[in-house]
Design a protein around this nucleic acid. Structure first.
Lengths: 181, 181
DNA sequence: CGCTAATTTCATTTTTTACAGAAAATTCCG
DNA sequence: CGGAATTTTCTGTAAAAAATGAAATTAGCG
């Protein structure tokens, strides 16, 4: 019996679907992900259709998208011709995969664009200084944030978890940072 | 003359508008924000309409939304009856305001929901253990991330910037974290 | 107060996005 | 190879979201 039959599981799936719509995925994609996340066995596309009452084509697209994010993978069940799918259940890895992909799709192109504008503005002499300045600072800010992200994501999972658990205590290592804002 | 007349400024505004559509705002809201961000003087709603070719009502809604995020504020110009608007230009504050508001709107309700499900699941004895486990771990994970965010956001801006510039070097303070993943 | 400028709200239209169903393509088994 | 099972792609439709214009409200000045 599919997990979607348990009311709490279903509520989770529906909530996750709504979340998805606010975080760059559509409802179907997020629902399929939630279902797989809760399932302890690989599901085939047809089973997903039935569980969520979605069209086969829609599920196919959703699965492709989830695989693009690297948070769902195909698996093969001996003696069964159909593809089966499983979701990443390690939450840290899930989080990292999603952030990395969103960065790649949306942040990176923005940095490129801003860098481009910066170059063109440097040449353009009758552009008001404050425009050049603000776009330039935005470019720098996003670049800095991104480079921080790239560095931190390269750390060992255990290190990251330790750092997170420390919370504000990391500030101890920074000279002159007694106070909160 | 409005900044939107400069090609680079206009491109910035348009790009920002597209960004917005992927990050939880609509095009108009993001464009209005971009325009104000680049302007070195307060703009009234009518000026924004003309600069971006948007309906007056649309601009009104966008301004309300931006004020809700706390990244645009009304200002008054002596001898002028109309409202004028200015955007936050300090990028760190801008970033913090946006993340705080998105957390409030989307993360907090999710934590509430997951906590609720967790409670109900604890009582429900015929729910498969792995469902309880996975929803429970998701709740914990998001809570941990959020609490980290809350703590870190309370640090002084200068401390945060120092920490960011350190990047992966913070790991030095964590015992046994030589390696990258 | 009364009048006008300015802003907001609301109903409607337009645009965008998601979804379903049909058709096409692929896979894999005999 | 032939043919069925399975998956994907494509096209039209439905649903959702955004934007407009008109009407209603509010605010400020004489």
């Amino acid at each position: 019996m599919g997990v979607e039959k348990y009311p709490e599981a279903l509520e989770f799936i529906l909530h996750w679907g709504e979340m998805g719509t606010h975080w760059g995925a559509n409802r179907s994609v997020a629902q399929v992900h939630a279902l797989l996340f809760l399932s302890d066995q690989p599901l085939d596309a047809e089973a997903i259709c039935e569980a969520l009452d979605l069209a086969r084509s829609n599920v196919s697209t959703a699965l492709k998208e989830l695989q693009g994010y690297g948070i769902v993978r195909r698996t093969h069940i001996p003696g069964d011709r159909r593809d089966h799918f499983v979701a990443e259940t390690e939450l840290w890895d899930l989080f990292m995969a999603i952030t990395a992909e969103r960065k790649r799709r949306e942040i990176d192109p923005t940095i490129t664009k801003l860098g481009e504008l910066k170059d063109r503005m440097a040449a353009n002499k009758d552009l008001p200084a404050h425009v050049r300045d603000r776009i330039g600072r935005m470019h720098e800010f996003i670049s800095t944030l991104t480079s921080w992200y790239e560095q931190v994501r390269g750390l060992k999972k255990s290190t990251l978890i330790s750092l997170m658990k420390m919370g504000a205590k990391v500030a101890r290592f920074i000279p002159g940072s007694k106070e909160a804002t």
